[in-house]
């Protein structure tokens, strides 16, 4: 695998109809956990096939088992309880969990499905976790009453999960922190400290994904995050954020994940516009440290849109490699 402009995706894929129906029926007690698990694995296999077909470099398992990135941990970490639906924007809702008592980690949550997904391919499979700051920020805290205490307790739980993934063989672990810029002046340092707790002593390459919100307020401060790669959503605002890197250079030791597909837009990008974004980024970050990815998880798009968009992404990457002889 060439290290120039590696491709991957951010985590989630759209659930096929049969799985969504089965999940609904499982909630209603009409499908057993075993049946649902079988269908989850079938859908995971399909996600892997799509990535094989498209020729991506680092795979994800697609998060077929997760309703959403925070609610899933709310269902599985001791001390949390699943919540009820609240709206995040537009017509999108999620089950916002509740921190009801001391948050703990008793056993691996994500490792089984990661192991299954990795068994289907020789390509590296990313371990996918949600970061402690985001889980706390997007939950109702009825227990701690102090954001600092809650975030650090959550960080210890997520650290155990990262450790379990690394022990199982995950080379890359992504810790999503889309809420990290919620209060940039007030507690960005807390989010950095929490990431330090998550990664400490775990032998894997850590990526983090940050999207939307006030990214300029946490740049260049975000370069203090103890991870190998920081991924940002660039296409959503037509690569405007690259101007930040023109003003303050990217960290020479870090990789940049360049979001090149708007996951909230039905419109399929042209190869040319994606190439333009990649070439702009290459003036700021060398090819071996620049990864090409969608802006965010792909679950917001239909399977057909996902294929079309990812095809464009890979084609643009290939053409840039050819154009620049990378």
């Amino acid at each position: 695998m060439s290290n120039a402009l590696r491709t991957t995706t951010v985590g989630s894929f759209a659930k096929p109809d049969y799985l969504q129906r089965a999940r609904n029926r499982h909630s209603a007690g009409k499908v057993t956990a075993k049946e649902l698990d079988g269908l989850t694995r079938q859908a995971t296999k399909e996600v892997i096939e799509v990535q094989k077909e498209l020729g991506l470099d680092v795979f994800v398992h697609g998060e077929m088992e997760r309703g959403d990135m925070v609610g899933y941990f709310g269902e599985n970490l001791p001390g949390m309880r699943p919540g009820e639906l609240v709206r995040s924007y537009g017509n999108r809702y999620y089950h916002k969990p509740v921190i009801a008592s001391e948050v703990r980690w008793d056993a691996p949550v994500t490792v089984d499905l990661w192991r299954y997904a990795q068994s289907l391919t020789d390509k590296p499979m990313k371990g996918m976790l949600t970061g402690p700051y985001t889980i706390v920020e997007w939950s109702f805290d009825e227990h701690y009453g102090s954001r600092r205490e809650a975030v650090l307790a959550m960080a210890r739980a997520i650290h155990h999960e990262a450790e379990a993934l690394a022990k199982a063989g995950a080379k890359y672990i992504q810790v999503d922190e889309p809420a990290i810029h919620t209060r940039p002046g007030e507690d960005f340092d807390l989010a950095v400290e929490a990431m330090g707790v998550v990664v400490k002593g775990v032998s894997a390459e850590f990526h983090t994904h940050i999207c939307y919100g006030d990214v300029p307020k946490i740049y260049p401060g975000m370069l203090r995050l103890p991870v190998t790669q920081i991924h940002l959503a660039f296409k959503n605002a037509n690569f405007e954020l690259l101007h930040l890197l023109e003003a303050d250079p990217w960290d020479s030791k870090k990789e940049l994940g360049l979001g090149v597909l708007d996951v909230h837009d039905h419109h399929v990008e042209s190869v040319e516009e994606v190439k333009e974004g990649i070439k702009h980024a290459l003036r700021l970050v060398p090819a071996d440290r620049l990864w090409i990815e969608p802006d965010c998880g792909l679950k917001t798009r239909t399977p057909e849109e996902v294929r079309k968009k990812l095809r464009v992404m890979v084609a643009a990457r290939d053409e840039v490699r050819r154009d620049l002889a990378l």
């Binding site: 709206r87 995040s88 924007y89 537009g90 916002k96 920020e137 997007w138 809420a179 810029h181 919620t182 209060r183 939307y212 919100g213 006030d214 959503n236 605002a237 909230h264």
Partner: peptide
């Protein structure tokens, strides 16, 4: 009407 932005310090977007 343009890009999605976080709505204050909430977990909602506008």
């Amino acid at each position: 009407v343009g890009a999605l932005e976080r709505y204050f310090d909430t977990n909602t977007y506008y």
